[in-house]
Design a protein around this nucleic acid. Structure first.
Lengths: 329, 329
DNA sequence: ATGGTCTTGGAAAACGATTTCCGAGATTTT
DNA sequence: AAAATCTCGGAAATCGTTTTCCAAGACCAT
């Protein structure tokens, strides 16, 4: 394998000089730079990232942490988009995405997790779908050892940023739109997983709307489950005018239930997954661009790794009405 | 960070001895082993995989290669299952899955690809969804430099194995079952992507059935596209008795078209994705356990890395009839 | 000239493992 | 009892980088 040593010999300079050129350090003349770059070209040299990581304890090795929970396969699409977005942008930014692991951290202590990450020379993390109960992750963020970007979480400190869309506003908007299109004062609102960060936010948005519009709001926990949404709808929808769901999957469950009951109630969802096109009826929803969100998260992590301070990034969303033709391809 | 050196000191032995114990080499007494293991326990030592990889040029660093093609988000589920299956098993087998990258290899020469993999100290690859046109990958396999496991491909040599289900038999079976349940001699068969390995195999299975049962077979290329399947169905289904599709997504497209035309024709699919539950009508399909397939691929790769010879592994499948209730969760 | 600051490039020590080789006892053979 | 063979554990080189420190020369001001 052609190493930095070979490049040095070819260029007639020292190893350290090559390294400096490659990493853009100062104190090296234009002339030497040219010699080195030429040698790199000629030898087709590609630095060994493993060695670099070992040596510097820094070279951008990043872990992608997916908390899948026990969600249905129907929403795998979301995670896939996250993954594709992350890896795509990471490659462009010269970050190595080490592993996509979900709950292989379960039953591990903070120390064990840290050691695991260290053993992989990982310096940065992107965390998707963290819940309020993930104490280990919570403490990992507090510890400020790694640079961390969380998605769909409000957690920010000196070494960690948060990327998300304004969940409350989005829930407010989509419900308001649905309300405008259909009269009604009596709302059945199905919430997401109990300890999810987004669940609380979306509920807030809904509550604000209820207050403003003087609605009667009936809240039930659907746990992001299609089946539970179905059952709750069967049970409670008859007496309500509109069903607002904190996720598309639940909206689909609700819609199916309504169709089975043969009554009509407007339903709206949240996420914008493809499956919405197959629900049987059109519904309003909040379209999140998961790929873009992931891509932004990577960029933010890069910034943190380069010494930036933690901050919150709020991305925009889109209200859409999804029907079969839109998802056809 | 606690290193092998610390362990050695704690146990009162040499560094090399610790390494031997950790890697199960011979020539070390039970007593010494115990001392070392105890020290490992006490210090909570976890070996640094990066250093190991650098040193041994071997330690299981594996790349997961996903060829997404331009498939719809509706089948992201399949890739997600592949990924989850791969990573899950890899962790158990102590393999580091380095990156999940798809077509970041496009427009790269064989040499560039090799150098990239080398620079990451990657010694093994798992390739999903390779097509007959992927010359670079083709040559990469021929080169026998890396241990490779391909999924859904018949490519085998000394250093590479292939894992798949018997596509021809599966297509034969599902079509036959559908045929038995519904009379008919005139088949519209919609094939997958032109250069896919699976496409040819599935077609073979269908052709064998046609011969055996003396069917008239009308074959059209649907490119795994829901939209194309829809259009082909609108155009050709009226004169046929049954629509057999080489993928669920196409089956859904076909079914929707039939519903729009308000005529009934039995349709069968292939894959067993969740979306089938939302197609509106029940359909037969071949259920592939993608997670299991991926898991087997990882195991096979491990075997190759340990010096095993390349071979072909054929996994089984299941014929199912998918309806909404089955996918509800 | 003399001394002091800048610039540039090299020597060498990490980083944390693996692995080869070697020597000293212990054990067996003659 | 001497010689040959085995076992076991240690010293040291190695993998391919990064990074620290230092020396030599160039340049400037005194």
């Amino acid at each position: 394998m052609v190493s930095i040593k070979d490049v040095a010999k070819q260029a007639g300079v020292a190893i350290s000089t090559v390294s400096k050129v490659l990493n853009g350090y100062p104190n090296v003349s234009e002339e030497t730079k040219k010699k080195v770059n030429q040698a790199v070209e000629e030898l087709n040299f590609v630095p060994n990232t493993v060695a670099a990581a070992l040596s510097s304890k820094q070279s951008g090795r990043v872990a992608l942490l997916l908390n899948l929970g026990n969600v249905a396969q129907a929403v795998d699409e979301i995670y896939m988009q996250y993954i594709a977005g992350t890896i795509g942008r990471a490659v462009e930014l010269n970050l190595d995405v080490i592993t996509v692991f979900d709950s292989m951290l379960k039953n591990k202590s903070l120390e064990e997790v840290i050691r695991y990450l260290r053993s992989q020379s990982i310096t940065g993390l992107i965390i998707f779908g963290m819940s309020k109960e993930d104490w280990v992750l919570q403490r990992l963020i507090d510890a400020q050892i790694f640079k961390i970007v969380t998605v769909d979480t409000p957690l920010v400190n000196a070494t960690s940023s948060a990327v998300w869309i304004d969940q409350a506003a989005a829930q407010y908007d989509v419900a308001k739109k649905t309300l405008k299109e259909n009269k009604g004062k009596n709302i059945l609102y199905l919430t997401g997983r109990k300890n999810g960060y987004v669940t609380a936010e979306r509920l807030k948005g809904m509550q604000r709307l209820a207050e403003e519009e003087n609605l009667s709001l009936y809240v039930r926990n659907g746990e992001f489950s299609e089946l539970q949404a179905r059952n709750l709808t069967l049970r409670y929808a008859k007496k309500r005018d509109i069903v607002v769901c904190a996720s598309d999957l639940m909206a689909i469950g609700a819609m199916r239930a309504l169709m089975d009951m043969d009554i009509f109630r407007p339903v709206c969802g949240f996420d914008g997954i493809t499956l919405m096109g197959y629900a049987g009826k059109q519904m309003n929803t909040v379209k999140q661009d998961f790929r873009r969100i992931a891509s932004e998260a990577v960029e933010e992590l890069k910034r943190l790794l380069d010494g930036g301070e933690g901050r919150q990034i709020v991305l925009d969303y889109e209200l859409v009405r999804m029907k079969y033709d839109d998802v056809l391809s």
